[in-house]
Amino acid sequence: MLQVSIYRYNPETDSAPYMQEFQVDTQGRDLMVLNVMEMLKEQDSSLAYRRSCREGVCGSDGMNMNGKNGLTCVTALSEVVKDNKLVLRPLPGLPVVRDLVVDMSLFYKQYERIQPYLLNDTPAPAIERLQSPEDRDKLDGLYECILCACCSTACPSFWWNPDKFVGPSGLLQAYRFLADSRDTATEERLSELDDPFSVFRCRGIMNCVAVCPKGLNPTRAIGKIRELLLANAT
């Protein structure tokens, strides 16, 4: 029997959060953590968590599993369970709405702040804008972000200043547009980032890289933004 310890909090009935213990019979199968949660929800339907695609592309089910952020649907028990014990907590650093559901408003606000859309002030051609395969390759490792917030909520700098530091996810997207040969708003984008918080709160801790379920590297993207800022301002 797998011992599962889950963070519980229902603001309507609980004055404070607590950890609830469950036992799950996995019958020796190496299930995904999400499968275990579904089994638990059948035992206790009041358990709240988000999920959608169950294949690691929608980014709904970011969670803290045995101390490390990840997506429950693509994390096998064998990757996280230690001593037959699984501890599930909500993503750290964001307000808890209920149980494992966090309020992601601040995370989305930071995403919106970097103007996450192509800006191009030239008239659009009748067909597509051309882009060489080499220029397109520059977007690889950037556009794949699924906004699961695993990285930003693993980042101490984001914990301290979630209202001011854009965070690894938002900055990865900021660089996705800076790196796009079709975007013409580089200067405008950079001028919005050149304050002591937005980019420069990154201390290179690299928790973001360690937890990203898509294997992306926000720290490298942040480094590239700094290089652009430097090149632009000196």
Binding site: E128, S132, P133, R136, D183
Partner: peptide, 20 residues
């Protein structure tokens, strides 16, 4: 509709001539 998506920024893969 597809060209509009491209103009919005959809990161299509490309042929050597730069087209989608």
């Amino acid at each position: 509709a597809v060209f509009e998506l491209e103009h919005m920024g959809l990161p299509f893969s490309r042929f050597d001539n730069g087209r989608i």
